[in-house]
Write a protein that binds this DNA or RNA. Structure first.
Length: 471
RNA sequence: GGCUGAGUGGCAGAGUGGCUAUGCACCGGAUUGCAAAUCCGUUUACCUCGGUUCGACUCCGGGCUCAGCCUCCA
């Protein structure tokens, strides 16, 4: 597999440290609000990576942290006159609901910063001892950027350039304006933990260093996160971790592109975000997933209803192809009994090649669509329908859909989900229309069809039977 | 200002030194009572200026435009 490594700025052949095993750490969510579509992208992108690694035969330890010790959480708790724990718990629940709606597989470990404070303190002590950090007289502890020679190697920034471009007021307790906080002294009323430097809490960067190394070791294979975390967050993680251990922190750095709105980054600070749950009012989680998979994970992705609708149409096409074949597709091994290969190997190969090429999900989706076309052709009524071929194509489409976390619903149900009328009412009208058609009362039958169409229910007369789907 | 990255057909979005991406939309045809779904076919591209090459959308360089980061952010 080829992975684009931000560290080298090129695609590299992926070689895990230990054959067959992969340690994957992804920066998760700071839980002070509902997740937006940008978070959805990160959740889905690394879920796709995880699924592909597992499908490739790796034993993957997938760690996605939860940042539940943070200024924003404390601020929100103060605003709502509640505790930080209350805020964290509420939005952890929300995040888990959203992640489930998007069809993501739960990570192997989901460490919380709150539970890693001791590990963070130990790391800070180690860095002070080695001269990479110092305590300020205000109770804060800072990392000394100048003591780490490789600072800037991920983002391509040099400390000298950074100093000259500084746009932020300099903290008088820092020896160098680039130094960053690893331990923050507590202000009155803030949640805090005891430490050798007084009560306080760890900074964001050290939390991630502590959580990742606690679960994956001093060196692990892949570290992922949003592109906006490349600097300073990941740069600082590297500085802390590598200064403390003398080892390479992560071998491969992956960064997903950001979601945009009107060609501008979607973010909390810009206020132009749409939460996952808002989108779920109009679209299914699977449609959001298909939307995210439609472009390469490193490209920017523009969010719009039109894009979601295009993904809905694409999924409808795939489910339509699958309709009527799902009984066979559920048991791909059955098809093997007759000596035919259970799955279409050429499609699988093409799909694997695409995914092995730095997760080319666009190409992977194209494979699904090509399978749908073949399936539609093979299962057409008429001369020499090849039953085994149809079964194989349907099974393959379902199988590869699963590789992307898609197409796992019953096709009929997927095509009908979200309908505004209840099924009994629709069935009654269909029955009436069928009777009218039998009597050649086409005026009446068309009137019923139009009425249903207005309610967003489309009728299809297939093989003498009428079925419906949501428009 | 510095550091990254991007500019593909009506829209979205892959990809390749010479050969069909794919989906949606459009047009023509098949099918249908008419539709829908489906199939077949057509049309529409590669920011700009140079360079390398037999040949570049694809490689190299300049320019223009856009985005991300340099402050919390997936």
């Amino acid at each position: 597999m080829q992975i684009y490594n931000t560290m080298s700025r090129r695609r590299e052949r992926f070689e895990p440290r230990e054959p067959g095993r992969v340690g994957l750490y992804v920066c998760g969510i700071t839980v002070y609000d509902h997740c937006h579509i940008g978070h959805a992208r990160a959740l889905v992108v690394y879920d796709l990576l995880y699924r592909h690694l597992v499908a490739s035969g790796y034993d993957v330890t997938y760690v996605r942290n939860i940042t539940d010790v943070d200024d924003k959480i404390i601020d929100r708790a103060a605003r709502e006159d509640t505790t930080a724990d209350d805020i964290s718990e509420r939005f952890i629940r929300s995040m888990h609901e959203d992640a489930a709606s998007l069809g993501t597989i739960a990570p192997t470990h989901e460490p919380r910063a709150m539970d890693s404070i001791d590990a963070a303190i130990k790391l800070i002590e180690k860095l002070i001892d080695s001269g990479h950090a110092y305590a300020g007289d205000n109770g804060d502890v800072y990392y000394a950027v100048s003591a780490f020679e490789d600072y800037g190697k991920l983002s391509g920034r040099r400390p000298a350039e950074l100093r000259s471009g500084l746009r932020v007021a300099v903290d008088e307790h820092k020896r160098d304006p680039l130094d960053f906080v690893m331990w923050k002294a507590a202000k009155p009323g803030e949640p805090s933990w005891p430490s050798p430097w007084g009560d306080g809490r760890p900074g964001w960067h050290i939390e991630c260093s502590a959580m990742s190394m606690s679960l994956l070791g001093e060196t692990f294979d892949i570290h992922g996160g949003g592109l906006d975390l490349e600097f300073p967050h990941h740069e600082n993680e590297i500085a802390q971790s590598e200064a403390a251990t003398g080892q390479t922190f992560a071998n491969y750095w992956m960064h997903n592109g950001l979601v945009r709105v009107d060609d501008e980054k979607m973010s909390k600070s810009l206020g132009n975000f749409t939460t996952i749950r808002q989108v779920l009012e109009h679209f299914d989680g699977e449609e959001i997933r298909a939307f995210i998979a439609s472009s390469h994970y490193r490209s920017p992705l523009n969010y719009s209803d039109a894009q979601l609708e295009a993904s809905r149409a694409a999924l409808q096409r795939l489910y339509t192809a699958l309709r009527g074949h799902d009984d066979i597709a559920d048991e791909p091994s059955n098809a093997a009994a007759g000596g035919e290969p259970a799955l279409d190997e050429s499609a699988i190969t093409r799909f694997d090649d695409a995914m092995n090429d730095d997760l080319n999900t666009s190409e992977a989706m194209a494979v699904l669509h090509d399978l749908a076309t073949q399936l539609n052709v093979a299962s057409r009524k008429g001369q020499n329908t090849d039953v085994a071929k149809v079964a194989q194509l349907a099974a393959t489409l379902r199988h590869l859909g699963a590789r992307l976390g898609l197409l796992q619903e019953d096709p009929e149900r997927a095509l009908q989900r979200g309908a505004s009328l209840d099924a009994d009412r629709i069935d009654a009208l269909i029955e009436e229309r069928t009777a009218a058609r039998a009597a050649k009362d086409f005026a009446r039958s068309d009137a019923i069809r139009d009425e249903l169409a207005k309610a967003g229910v489309l009728l299809e007369d297939v093989d003498g039977k009428t079925t419906w789907r949501r428009s």
